[in-house]
Nucleic acid binder design. Sequence first.
DNA 1: ATCTTAACGGAACTCACGTCCCTTTAAGGG
DNA 2: CCCTTAAAGGGACGTGAGTTCCGTTAAGAT
Lengths: 223, 223
Amino acid sequence: MEQDSRLGGGSSAEGGSPPAASGARRPGGRTAKVRRAVLDATQEALAASGFHTLNMDRIAASAGVGKTTVYRRWGSPVGLVADLLDDMAEQSLPAADTGGLAGDLRANAALVLGTLTDPRMGPVFRAVIAAAACDEECARALAGFYRTRLAEWAPVGERAVARGELPAGTDPLELLRAVSAPLYYRFAVTHEQPTPADAERAVTAALVAAAAGAFAPGGADAS
Amino acid sequence: MEQDSRLGGGSSAEGGSPPAASGARRPGGRTAKVRRAVLDATQEALAASGFHTLNMDRIAASAGVGKTTVYRRWGSPVGLVADLLDDMAEQSLPAADTGGLAGDLRANAALVLGTLTDPRMGPVFRAVIAAAACDEECARALAGFYRTRLAEWAPVGERAVARGELPAGTDPLELLRAVSAPLYYRFAVTHEQPTPADAERAVTAALVAAAAGAFAPGGADAS
DNA sequence: ATCTTAACGGAACTCACGTCCCTTTAAGGG
DNA sequence: CCCTTAAAGGGACGTGAGTTCCGTTAAGAT
């Protein structure tokens, strides 16, 4: 049940420092290319037909690698998804800075909405959420992915506090979660397609709540 | 691939009117008992080890019925989950009425939080969300479940509007979704355990946003 | 250039999942 | 109470996912 090697991680193309030790690993050309091919095939398969049909044999075939390799390095479908999530977390795109909180949050909501409704990434995220609900390792990978994403956007809230747009002590992560939550709730729980109107409503509600201090400790207690 | 009969539905114990026709179905004692035993075993299995390990043979064994029967009536693990959801939707518990909107919403948030953190129902809901992300029929069943639940609580918002606590035109379902969303987001997406503090924050934010008209058409546009 | 061995790949094998066929039980109607 | 047949049950069977074994390729070091 235990895999025999650590997954590729971030050490694929440009290695920082050479290992130099005798028990040398070989993350060089071939291994990196195999990982890339397999992860691409995995994302393709998730986009096309979801998590429950993810099949190691088919992934191996469509990636053009031996199925033994896929079983050895990833072990199971959830292993594939977990490594895909680690890979996705590395590809960070910078947060917006429109000069105002409302604009920044709208940009964030638009990004989330665009991802969830994208014909390719929507199904991928649905599959990844399913995988995380099935497996603990996958759940950790997904949590790590969102931790990375949210941390990139945290400056949006911090700048707003610095500008005096929001009460001191406002939690910038909580603010971002308040924007994402309604969109993900629709997407993952009730399976309604989130709309631009939903995104706008989420931004408005988050702004009002944040201004009232709902995301700062001891702020805005309900009457 | 197609199942040969409609699932049990609501016609299990007390039938309203006898069928009387010649081409008679038989939803009588045995069939109903088999369904109950299988659905109980399914929920037990989901609570214990999640959706991806749900196995028709084991369900049949632990329900004490033939595995042919389980395959014939439910076809697959997602069929089991879909029918379980239909069954859960029927067991409706009434909404709170504390006399004030804040109290009602707190009761709703407490109910959601209690369900998601319950040692038995938490894993069941996680499994059900995974199943819905894997299968369209299951997704419809889950959407139906929440439609039922939300409709039961809608009077909370309607009464608040009638009392003048909220702007006219406020969508009561949107208000409830705003309370649930942050809790489900944590539960299903980032896999953090939702806390009473999260529930309280969700209620506070929803109240403030609703009072500002964020859930009424044309209300509270962001500055 | 040559050597060592990490990593990949092909193919046979195992066993559990799901299906099929036929028998047995009991629900509903007279 | 008996008859009809819907529905459940038992067991054999085929397929494919996952494992194992061993030969092949090429990364990294000298």
